[in-house]
Design a binder for these strands. Structure first.
Lengths: 196, 196
DNA sequence: AATGAAAGGATTAAGCC
DNA sequence: GGCTTAATCCTTTCATT
């Protein structure tokens, strides 16, 4: 894997702010030509860092219903439940925790929250459920500044092309060396076993 | 406000899937010319339905740390806390509930979760806190099919240009008639007063 | 990674329904 | 008012260095 450098990160930042701006404008900002930016974007897409070009929609103007945050404690049937919730078009953000909770944000018809939830839960074994009305919501594609870099998940040092990679719980982590990797994996597994 | 029609919704859907595709391709799909699509996109942006063109980044490849979901029950100081959390670059999703909880998803250094949280909380009065490791996360810009329409938040009927609009908790709702509007507002306020 | 030529989109303006 | 077509301008892509 080729290293990501500051220029790549700046390009991502600019695309996050406006994904449809010309590559030549981005080039002006980072001191590259348009084609050079295009090449980098292609590489970023191939490596999976850039997942997709998309659009941020103010759904409150489009879909009926009250915005709610739902928390379910799931004893069994998580896989199917996750799929049902994920494919529900009223659900926009979804999180699965290591200790078996399914959290999601979506919009429910004001007079049908109970039925809506019952449909989603289906035959999954849900021990606890909690629904809150959401006042305010924010998703931030804008990337921060200085903390944003390809760093070792264990020690924070920069990861270069000699680095290692580990997939844990669906995410990819990078490490600068094998010892950082094994230390991190151990700690992660401990955290997962007995979450705070 | 001009009505949104099926074509607008389809355009949004296509842009959500690939925001950088040519307008003429979108036009082929919806049966319009490129310039017509361009016009509609401009209108959608002006009306605020399309908030921005952006990029979905796999941050797991970029930032160190364990993905965590944090839940804070806040007695006072929510406004400042919300701002601090929102501007933290490691925080990507944030929700504020009507009953004074602040929920967010971000990435913490594995060995510094406590300090990271303490910094974010600052002088806010937080009664309870809970941190969970996140196994799986999904954000869905893809819009569903049939449920996706400009509908009355109360009765589900289509809202036309005669419709009314109400802003509640930072979101905009649409109604087909004044009576739906007042019924919805009442129910919303009840939900907010005593959330489930 | 830059350059320059060729191809392909976007935007504008004029005209139609 | 919203659409289309045609012309212009700009962006992207590709071959070359």
């Amino acid at each position: 894997m080729r290293d990501l450098d500051e220029t790549d990160l700046r390009i991502i930042e600019l695309l996050a702010a406006d994904a449809r701006q010309p590559y030549s404008d981005i080039g002006d900002d980072v001191g590259l030509s348009g084609p050079a930016v295009s090449d980098r974007v292609k590489r970023l897409q191939d490596s999976g860092v850039l997942k997709r070009f998309t659009v941020d929609v103010d759904r409150s103007q489009l879909r009926a219903g009250v915005p709610v945050f739902v928390r379910l404690t799931v004893d069994s049937g998580m896989a199917g439940l996750r799929e049902r919730v994920s494919s529900a078009s009223a659900v926009e953000h979804l999180f699965v925790t290591a200790d078996g909770e399914l959290l999601f944000y979506g919009r429910a018809q004001a007079d049908g929250v109970r039925d809506w939830l019952a449909d989603l839960i289906g035959d999954a074994d849900v021990r606890e459920r909690e629904v809150s009305v959401v006042d305010d919501m924010e998703w931030t594609p804008a990337l921060g500044g200085v903390e944003f870099a390809l760093t070792c998940a264990e020690c924070g040092n920069t990861v270069d092309s000699e680095g290692e990679t580990e997939r844990l719980g669906g995410d990819v982590y990078h490490f600068c060396c094998p010892s950082c990797r094994s230390r991190f994996v151990e700690r992660y597994e401990r955290m997962e076993a007995g979450a705070e």
